[in-house]
Design a protein around this nucleic acid. Sequence first.
DNA 1: CGGTAAATTGACCTGGGTCAATAAATGTGG
DNA 2: CCACATTTATTGACCCAGGTCAATTTACCG
Lengths: 244, 244
Amino acid sequence: MPESCLADLLGDLAPLSAEERAVLVRLEEREKSFRRGAAILRENDRLTEVFVLRRGTAMSYVLLDDGSRQIMAFHYSGDLLAMSALVYRHSSQSIVALTDCMVSPIERGAMAQVLLDQPRLAALILALTQIERVALTDRLAGVGRTSARSRVAALLLMVRDRLRALDPSIGQTFTLGLTQEEIGDATGLTAVHVNRMLRQLEASELIAREGGRVTLVKEPALIVEANYVNRYDGIDLGWLPPVD
Amino acid sequence: MPESCLADLLGDLAPLSAEERAVLVRLEEREKSFRRGAAILRENDRLTEVFVLRRGTAMSYVLLDDGSRQIMAFHYSGDLLAMSALVYRHSSQSIVALTDCMVSPIERGAMAQVLLDQPRLAALILALTQIERVALTDRLAGVGRTSARSRVAALLLMVRDRLRALDPSIGQTFTLGLTQEEIGDATGLTAVHVNRMLRQLEASELIAREGGRVTLVKEPALIVEANYVNRYDGIDLGWLPPVD
DNA sequence: CGGTAAATTGACCTGGGTCAATAAATGTGG
DNA sequence: CCACATTTATTGACCCAGGTCAATTTACCG
């Protein structure tokens, strides 16, 4: 059976009909691959399509004019990228592949067609953007009001949970796949200070590290310190009509 | 003709059919008023409805367990509040009236019905949430990577633009309607430092203040300092089918 | 095996926080 | 319309979490 990564993600929220799956598979017909470090989209590029990330991880960020960077999100398989193409003519952010990536570009018109013809899918996509919005508010609260240590802890938990959603075999140990500079640009810190916080978390025996892999040694304590909530949990789409 | 504040807001994005307007008017049938300072929704409350803000201004925020507060957004007439009710059973944030407010509660089921039956409206609401998401990423970049002065300037511009969208007669002078503590909680600063930045902006003759009213004396310079973009501008919904 | 990117550490600095004391503004009841 | 109470704004003195700079070390890569 042909497959759709977006369907896998939406299917975690609610059951999909065969027709809905077929529609999503068709959306991901085209494919484009990007090498690690390659730009999937650049700030100010003309926006004509949205993307589904099919394989690999990516990040979106903005560059400020003093050269500093704020990473807005890390993206994993199934994520919809550049959804702002539905609203704006030009991109306000850049999207770059963190690992080699496979991406399906979707013409804005094709996406629009699906939104208009498939009300359940449109509702699910709206639900997904709400999840992402709440996750973004969590990050805003973290950056605005919590300590460096807490922000780094929150980022570790967030990455682990995203990875686990794709691979349930992942437990406390995982490959972070980010440099300390990237962690800093996501949390509003410097790479130097991220390093200090990681070593401090390690010294406090909340985490362990070896060769790019991180272990959450005392996950409950980390969750408390980070004020962390997994926003992909506790979803309730009871109002969505059951599949035909 | 009966009216809908949400229709006014969505109508700025794209023309609405008479039927669509009628549907929106029906959504705002019920009304509930809140005094300044009253809680429209409290963190952890059971979520059973979303709201349209019909009159007044409000804000949503989270409280962290050290007692600090992060304000996520200020809300104005027409805004959809508590949209996360579509996804979660309990609220992750509080919403409080900043002025006396009139609000229309909408049962989650009623909102769902509209999303499923009115694909153009669903698409417009999705578009609106994208605008809000991009505005939120701007704020994240501001809090994560810019100076206190720049964040305060950005907030002033943002509030002015929101007010102006509702009342085009507003020029460079407007009533902020926020305490310095609220500005601080929105920008990740302390009230004391907000005060210093406001006086500094005043001393630099970028703004003027008198009795709660702010004037943007040198708006272009402020926009540059704040790295500000009005995300309600430059919308392109060309893909949306024309009204019947 | 060199060469570049990433991590680590130490010394020192600073933007913004903290604390505390007034002053101004805004309400409120009488 | 006034006296008092409560927020809100303002200012100064001082502090510290996190930034900056610079030097190594370690890991990765063709």
